[in-house]
Design a binder for these strands. Structure first.
Lengths: 221, 221
DNA sequence: CACTAAAACGGAGGCGCCTCCGCTTATTAC
DNA sequence: GTAATAAGCGGAGGCGCCTCCGTTTTAGTG
């Protein structure tokens, strides 16, 4: 926001600095019984930071200014850095939160809607999630080569959520029973390849509907 | 040098900014007939910059301050950026120069020494080159995913140089004839895995000698 | 409630990145 | 030689990163 006041962007620019140094390393020691209860104010600030960062990354990409994020969260830059020693730490937390939200939504939707509708709505949300992931892509690439848990954790959870929705929809007869989660995941994956055109959102919406029609066709119900 | 005045290093830190933007892209258009002859002073500055940058990267890693490099080369920071719009551009040129030197050395050594000695001396130099490459690793990783020519160009040239030395040594009977360049390359590759201990140089020297003894053993001469 | 140790805060300060644009210099034409 | 002009130079300036350390806040304890 405050960045790039003259409308110029660097061509490529920097690269992570010291891969020899400590990466985030979420798997502390294979046991993290009590991760130290944070002081109330600290917890509050931390949450606020993550929330603001999520918005900022979504809006400006991973290069959003950390100082701006701190300011918008109403804390000093020092506080941000104490909680998240590197940009990647922050990105990781935001990303995990995103995944969390996505998986949680699966449960919610399943309770509020017929199985096929739940699936459709969830796929819409999934597409938005992909878009976020796209914005974070460069940082995520580093994180995924650095922190192997991240990939297995998240992709497992997401595909699990999807499988549950699909099985429920199939069981209730709202969609055909001869496809499985990985097929659908693949189909949705095609959306990822679409370039960042401005009408990307609408197009992806149409793709989801199309896919959904395909899934409904030939359902026993 | 001027960097990090307090002895602190960031843990990981930044990542390249806009992969959407133009990467170095050496393959201009499959034809670059006359790349515009540089003005004399410009050429001088450019050469000096590359030379200084090579030293700086070797000494301080890819994170060497570009402002420091410019200063040491006796030019303004603006000049550096005009010649090399991004850090990666500069790294690429330095790296290519390194490869150039390495391959050139193969020819030189072959003329000045018996084939087996030439090979040994060259392998020593190769090991130093690997060390450089290690220093540039992070930037190179980006470059190699971005600029596909770079990898094929350089690795082809290097392994070609090695093959020539080995074949000459084998032909002259100084080393056994039942190994080829890729075997030796693999063997030398083992050195790469050695951590950045301070005695790395000596150790690698010993490894090269060891390898050389193995190659000499059973030679027909 | 008062007090205290520990935890957390926050922003100044120092550095590097990168761009822009007024000035300098090499080259070319006469 | 001189003039004209294109090419190149360089560094100030603005921004973001990250650390350090004096100040503030919280959670216990009596």
């Amino acid at each position: 926001m405050g960045a790039d006041p003259h409308g110029f962007k660097p061509h490529i620019a920097r690269v992570e600095k010291k891969l020899t140094e400590q990466p985030p390393e979420t798997t502390e020691k294979l046991e993290t019984p009590a991760p130290k209860p944070l002081r109330a104010d600290a917890q509050r600030n931390r949450d606020k930071l993550v929330e603001v960062a999520a918005q900022a990354f979504a809006a400006d990409g991973v290069d959003a200014s950390l100082e701006e994020i701190a300011k918008r969260a109403g804390v000093g830059i020092g506080t941000l850095y104490r909680h998240f020693p590197t940009r990647e730490h922050l990105v990781e937390v935001v990303y995990r939160r995103e995944v969390e939200g996505l998986c949680h939504a699966a449960g919610e939707l399943a309770q509020l809607h017929p199985a096929d509708v739940a699936l459709e709505l969830w796929m819409q949300r999934f597409v938005d999630y992909i878009a976020t992931k796209r914005g974070l892509a460069t940082s995520l690439r580093v994180l995924l080569t650095t922190n192997s848990t991240l990939f297995s954790d998240t992709s497992g959870r997401v595909s699990g959520a999807m499988r549950r929705l699909i099985e429920a929809a199939a069981a209730s007869g709202k969609i055909r029973a001869d496809v499985d989660a990985s097929d659908v995941m693949h189909a949705l994956g095609g959306i990822y390849s679409a370039p960042n055109t401005p009408d990307w959102r609408e197009r992806s919406g149409r793709l989801v509907k199309l896919l959904m029609d395909g899934l409904r066709f030939g359902a026993k119900g």
